[in-house]
């Protein structure tokens, strides 16, 4: 498996606080990689650095061999890294279809003239984007809600819509920030199955930040464990699960013997 994303020596300091310290790991192509760790381990900081929300104090982020550190979020999406948000994040007043379309149009760029006056180029772009939207809606089981305002959907559906918008930008790597938070156990299981289908159907790799261990153990091919801003373990899920350092980080030193 080739490497899609290379994180090298990533460090982030907020004033005197070191949130992330010299963290390196790779994300492989066609895999689902989990980034886990106890609260305050630096998972979200790491996520925000990769997606361009913050810029790193030092270190490199390379995607498909290209350095993307320091780029603004909208440029990083163009490179093929799409993200979702921890909370259910949608365009609340727009329909589900329109929400996903706004993501899909990234791959159908238009000049200012076509944006204002329409014409053939604008029509072709919209048609192309709509094909993507239909595919994405089907994969995330949102088709029946296509014409509802996103803000009126149930929480679980809104979280799925967030994934749909990201997927519509046709990313090489989809970054999910706690996709299971706030979902009930049934919804988590269905989401896990959907995630595997998405990986197959859209040929997309996934990096997932999550607390929900059952989901992580079920879907991930590879895990990276952070604690106190440092990487403490990495490897296949069943190996990481038995790693004394990981058990210590989660449960305390008494359990690690």
């Amino acid at each position: 498996m080739s490497t899609l994303l290379e994180i090298g020596g990533l460090t982030k300091r907020f004033g005197g606080l070191t949130a992330l310290s010299d963290v390196s790991f790779n994300v492989a192509e066609d895999a689902i990689t989990g980034l886990i760790g106890p609260n305050g381990a630096g998972k979200t900081t790491c996520f925000n650095l990769i997606t361009g929300t913050f810029s790193a104090t030092s270190g490199t982020i390379r995607f498909r061999g290209q350095d993307i550190s320091g780029l603004p979020p909208h440029r990083i999406v163009q490179h093929g890294l799409a993200r979702t948000f921890q909370a259910a994040t949608t365009f609340p007043k727009a329909s589900v279809r329109e929400n996903i379309l706004r993501g899909a149009l990234l791959r159908h760029p238009l000049g200012l003239g076509s944006m204002l006056f329409g014409g053939g180029a604008a029509r072709r772009a919209e048609q192309g984007a709509r094909d993507t939207v239909d595919k994405v809606m089907e994969a995330l089981e949102l088709t029946e809600h296509a014409d509802r305002a996103a803000g009126t959907l149930a929480y679980g559906h809104q979280k799925r819509l967030g994934v749909a918008i990201g997927l519509a930008t046709r990313p090489g790597l989809l970054l999910l920030d706690e996709p299971a938070a706030g979902l009930n156990p049934d919804e988590v299981d269905r989401f896990g199955s959907m995630l595997k289908e998405i990986r197959e159907g859209f040929g997309v790799s996934v990096l997932i930040v999550e607390h929900h261990m059952r989901l992580i153990m079920r879907v991930c091919d590879h895990l990276v464990v952070l604690d106190h801003g440092e990487k403490i373990a990495e490897g296949a899920p069943d190996r990481v699960r038995d790693d004394p350092k990981v058990i210590e980080a989660y449960l305390g030193a008494d359990h690690a013997k």
Partner: peptide, 15 residues
């Protein structure tokens, strides 16, 4: 509309 409704999500969608 995307920018007005949700700036962070619009940016994350490549706008």
């Amino acid at each position: 509309g995307a920018v007005e409704e949700n700036l962070a999500l619009a940016e994350a969608s490549g706008i």
